[in-house]
Design a protein around this nucleic acid. Structure first.
Lengths: 238, 238
DNA sequence: TCAAAAGTGTTCGATATACACCCATGC
DNA sequence: GCATGGGTGTATATCGAACACTTTTGA
């Protein structure tokens, strides 16, 4: 009985969302060490270090991936199916990568957000990272496809409880139309534009600027900004 | 660098809520093996077995604790602070209990629900279990107090997304008044009783019975039941 | 002048909130 | 008859949903 208790390797995997004005994307990395299966993309992740909290491990993965410190992130689920890491190619990759006899791998999944046009300074082991539209994801190792699927419902909940995260996906100056398309992408449904304007106008922390688009072949849209500080202060006091 | 990756022991801990018509309670167990600190209560939990998913481990803990199969349960957070298991008395208890050199212990926390007057057939290692009101919890080992604190916001979210779980906390036949007190306890605020009646009347799956209270020193309240099957069917089709 | 996207108000129904009195029962 | 909790209705405010035309700009 006692001997049935196991210790296990624990990893974090990060689902980093981006938005390109049309659809949601996810940041994937090349699985390195697997030269033979060259087009093998996966979620960025890592085993946790000794003395490292899982939140810190996720921050570390994101820093190595993007060069950005203290990104917004949210733990959303622990995936621990005993079958999740037992495909032969996945076991082989684990052996090659960590040179450690990994009998079982459990992962804690995180959501994060990144402006898609942000320059990423990849300081990590990853050869390359790539934005993939969620409508056209490759088959990924382990249960990464399942993790992404469940992250989609999570990002909706998150936005509902905290609008400020929507603005992590947009440029600092954005148009209502961009925000509108983002919401349509997140909720995967049409949203009436007039009602949407009203809703945004009611938000004190989304502030219209005097600036407008230039050089567009149609009426120029006004730019807005999001006042993070005032939003956070307001949130505190409620 | 590679040697910094660790494997860790992984446990599940369950926060089982009950309701006694006045306040929420949590089911705690005696920490066994700790004869010297006799009044040491903790959350029921266990290390996971080889080949066991965390959800299954939580189900197993609940079965051993209550004798009930397939209780409703919900994973809500993974607690992995490196400091969470380094109090001397906690380390000593781990050694005694698992006879295994546990360098680090990470836990996945679960919410569950149980009718407080249900007879529990404790088939487990636990000497005793005890319902404790959430307003008067003992100091517990590890970060169990913190786990309980965060479970409180979780149970609100859960009820909001799935009313049916409220009825896991009440007898099969209940009065509106009981349900009302439950909601007041969960949200920790007064709720207008007339509006509450209206709200419940609008729920198709809360069904008034012909039966009433007997032997009470005031007007007898009507009993209601919750039609789980019709609720689930309805939920499917939406 | 045309194409393309921006911007703008009103109405309606549903939902949440506030609020106070009579009813049934056992003692 | 009184103490205790059960049960009921109305008015108002708020929110979300539906719906179509005019404006600005570059090509």
């Amino acid at each position: 009985m006692k001997t049935n208790f196991i210790h296990t390797h624990l990893s974090v995997d990060c689902v980093v969302f981006g938005f390109d004005d049309k659809q949601l994307h996810i940041l994937l990395v090349q699985r390195n060490g697997g030269e033979n299966n060259a087009n093998s993309l996966k979620l960025p992740g890592s085993l946790i270090y000794e003395g490292e909290d899982v939140d810190d491990a996720a921050q570390r993965v994101l820093l190595e991936l993007t060069g950005i410190k203290r990104m917004k992130l949210k733990q959303f689920h622990c995936f621990a199916s005993p079958d999740r890491a037992n495909k032969p190619e996945d076991m082989k990759w684990l052996d090659q990568t960590y040179r450690s006899n990994i009998n079982r791998l459990i992962t804690v999944a995180y959501l994060s957000l990144c402006k898609i046009d942000r320059k990423l300074t990849n300081v990590s082991k990853y050869k390359a990272s790539k934005w993939c539209p969620i409508s056209d994801l490759p088959e990924m190792p382990f249960d990464h496809n399942q993790i992404v699927a469940s992250s989609l419902t999570e990002i909706r909940n998150w936005i509902e409880h905290d609008i400020s995260i929507a603005f992590e996906l947009l440029p600092n100056k954005f148009t209502i139309s961009q925000l509108h398309r983002l919401y349509e992408a997140v909720y995967d449904k049409k949203i009436d534009i007039r009602n949407f304007h009203k809703k945004i106008a009611a938000l004190n922390d989304v502030i219209p600027l005097d600036e407008k688009q230039e050089g567009v072949a149609h009426r120029a849209a006004r730019y807005y900004k999001f006042d993070k500080h005032s939003y956070n202060k307001r949130k505190m006091t409620i």
